[in-house]
């Protein structure tokens, strides 16, 4: 059976590449720390030695629009083009061509149908920054085949937070049953509190630091009960109008299962708080050592991070 060697859940910030390759006088003050944390986080994936990446993201009205917007979709291709014109324009993200894994895409798709998730599918999917951002941050050589899974965190009405958790659990079951000796890593990105186009965007911090601290606690402790008690479409909207991307992080926790994370890091930036979390479902001494080594550089925690009573991370 396949070996799920790592599950990564992080925020995606499309300006990471631009910010950390800017060596002009305008280089943002956080850029060095941001780069150090991302490069340390990358080590938590590298140590897991994956052969293939299952990648969870969401199309930001690049390929899909309101004439036909899929709730859940899987890509089924040998190759994937990536990065749209307006992402190059706004974020400076380059184009990529990524390999696919048709065998795993097909197996995953059938498994999801069998589990009651009636997925849409595409044989001409172009990947956007929700998947390219983590390629840039944790696998910049872009040398591994991917199986892309898209969710709707963007165009209401959206599925419930519980549905995202259940989908993560179903994906985990399919990975565990996959008859292969491959090492698989699952990587998904989303957001903590986020505001786009509203009064709380582009502030000195994310729009709701208290939500962010609680969210990191929920995820890093594997506490799905608290997530389901506290996270609704309404509560996410009150934390910031684009906070619904948090549901993809719930999905990733579903793949990992209700257990503590093995690597938890964060960075308070202007506009957002960034989060970098890794679970090792079958933790070995080598993986634990890699996470410890990465944490020495980044200052990450090697276990749960709890919100203080006032909501700010302890």
């Amino acid at each position: 059976m396949a070996d799920l060697t790592a599950v990564l859940a992080s925020t995606h910030h499309p300006f990471y590449l631009k910010a950390t390759t800017d060596h002009s006088e305008q280089r943002m003050p956080h850029a060095d720390e941001w780069q150090r944390k991302v490069e340390a986080y990358r080590e938590t994936l590298t140590a897991a030695r994956p052969d293939v990446l299952i990648m969870v993201g969401a199309d930001h009205f690049h390929q899909f629009f309101l004439d036909n917007y899929p709730t859940f979709l899987i890509g089924k291709q040998e190759k994937y083009d990536a990065t749209f014109y307006n992402e190059e324009r706004e974020f400076g993200i380059p184009k990529y061509v990524l390999d696919g894994d048709m065998e795993l895409s097909n197996y995953m798709h059938q498994g999801l149908l069998d589990a009651g998730f009636d997925f849409s599918f595409s044989h001409e999917l172009k990947i956007d920054h929700s998947i390219i951002c983590p390629i840039i941050t944790v696998r910049p050589d872009a040398d591994l085949p991917i199986v892309p899974i898209y969710t709707n965190i963007f165009a209401p009405p959206m599925p419930s937070p519980k549905r995202f958790w259940d989908l993560g659990r179903a994906i985990r079951g399919i990975i565990d049953a996959y008859p292969s000796d491959k090492k698989i890593a699952a990587i998904g990105t989303g957001h903590l509190s986020l505001e786009l186009g509203g009064p709380r965007m582009f502030g000195d911090h994310g729009p709701d630091p208290e939500f962010d601290a609680r969210a990191i606690e929920w995820l890093s402790t594997g506490n799905i009960d608290s997530v389901l008690e506290n996270v609704t479409h309404e509560s996410m909207a009150s934390a910031g109008n684009a906070t619904h991307g948090f549901m993809d992080l719930i999905l990733m926790m579903g793949i990992a299962g209700p257990r503590e994370a093995d690597y938890v890091d964060q960075l308070d930036l202007f506009h957002t708080r960034e989060m970098f979390m890794t679970w090792y479902p079958n933790k070995t001494e080598a993986l634990a050592a890699a996470a410890a080594s990465a944490a020495e550089s980044s200052g990450a925690s090697l276990g749960p991070v709890y919100a203080a009573k006032d909501g700010v991370s302890a």
């Binding site: 930001h60 009205f61 309101l66 307006n86 324009r89 706004e90 963007f154 165009a155 786009l196 186009g197 509203g198 965007m201 109008n241 684009a242």
Partner: peptide, 17 residues
């Protein structure tokens, strides 16, 4: 557009451009 409920991502990215 905000008050009308047009999708924020669409006009934010376009107008930034």
């Amino acid at each position: 557009l905000f008050a009308y409920g047009a999708h924020f991502f669409l006009y934010l990215t376009l107008f930034i451009g």
